[in-house]
């Protein structure tokens, strides 16, 4: 049977015509949102009031166009746990949190899937069953207990706590890796045994490279997720704010946001509250890295990633 993706030919279909219009309208709303974010970030407040929808400058001329909103977002700071944290440190926290957590969140299920798929012990079946069971069985409301655990182990308020919390194997990507490893013929392993390779060498140098596409794709997906995630750092690492938390605070109530230039004067001041331009400038800064990654790795991110393994 051929499972290739050949084009299906239909006569003109009202069904797909209507569907196309609906998707087109939906697409228009998404594109409009990105457009609005970009143009509003460069408007002054009076410009935005006079000209909320169109390009900057069409309301109050050149006076309506500004880079001040972007500058203000970068020069403000967040007060977290009594300490003023500036944007570069938040970017550093975000990179460590996103990349580190994504790495462990990808590596751990990958390694466990390798052992479960390639080592035919009864316990491997148990590992698989645990994953399926935990994925199906919802456990609700464990946040207080998690906070207690982190405080008791001294991990609370440390970036490494995210690596530990998210570095678990009970997620759907275990199943993706499992299927991938199961799809690797035994010949590779046996040939390596014949050459005298150790188990570790077989795992690292022979089998893992075969699924590197899946590994990298899942790593990217996790990186984007964790870059956008503000809730986990908010709950478990409040003293090390990330960009996501900063932009969220900037966008909702601006509590604990201060003008960087006034820190150290004895009376630090907060920026003007609630302006749409400042919010959009913050959103733009947050969106740029993920949009960049999307531009660079679009095919990988949107590639055929199913529980049947990587295709094409």
């Amino acid at each position: 049977m051929k499972n290739n993706e050949t084009k299906m030919k239909h006569k003109f279909s009202p069904f797909y015509c209507v569907l196309g219009i609906v998707i087109g309208l939906y697409s228009a709303t998404i594109i409009s949102s990105i457009y609005f974010m970009f143009v509003t970030a460069f408007k002054t407040q009076p410009e935005f009031r006079a000209n909320p929808l169109w390009l900057p400058g069409m309301g109050r001329g050149i006076a309506g166009l500004t880079f001040n909103n972007i500058t203000e977002v970068f020069t403000c700071c967040l007060k977290a746990d009594g300490i003023f944290v500036f944007v570069p440190e938040m970017i550093y926290n975000s990179i460590i949190y996103s990349f580190g957590t994504a790495f462990f969140a990808t590596l751990v299920p990958c390694v466990m899937a390798y052992f479960a798929a390639k080592f035919e012990y009864k316990f491997s079946g148990l590992i698989y069953a645990i994953v399926v069971a935990v994925m199906i069985i919802p456990v609700v409301g464990t946040m207080p207990a998690t906070i207690r655990m982190l405080k008791n182990t001294g991990l609370y308020n440390k970036l490494v706590s995210a690596f530990v919390l998210k570095g678990n194997f009970v997620n759907m990507y275990f199943l993706v890796f499992y299927a991938s490893f199961k799809g690797v013929p035994k010949d590779y392993t046996e040939a390596a045994y014949v050459d005298g390779a150790s188990e570790l060498r077989i795992m690292v140098n022979v089998i893992m490279p075969l699924i590197r596409n899946a590994f990298f794709t899942i790593l990217l997906i996790f990186f984007v997720d964790f870059w956008n995630d503000y809730q986990t750092p908010l709950l478990y690492i409040p003293a090390k704010p990330t960009i996501a938390r900063y932009i969220r605070t900037l966008s909702t109530d601006m509590v604990n946001v201060y003008k960087g230039a006034t820190i150290g004067t004895g009376s630090p001041q907060a920026p003007a509250k609630g302006s749409m331009q400042l919010q959009m400038a913050g959103c733009l800064i947050m969106a740029v890295p993920t949009l960049t990654i999307f531009c660079l790795f679009r095919n990988k991110l949107m590639g055929n990633l199913s529980m049947g393994g990587i295709k094409g």
Binding site: F74, T75, P88, A261, G264
Partner: peptide, 16 residues
């Protein structure tokens, strides 16, 4: 943009 942003407040942060 990151390079333009300050890392410490003027006056050394919190005092002086």
């Amino acid at each position: 943009a990151t390079a333009c942003a300050p890392t410490t407040p003027p006056g050394g942060g919190g005092g002086g």
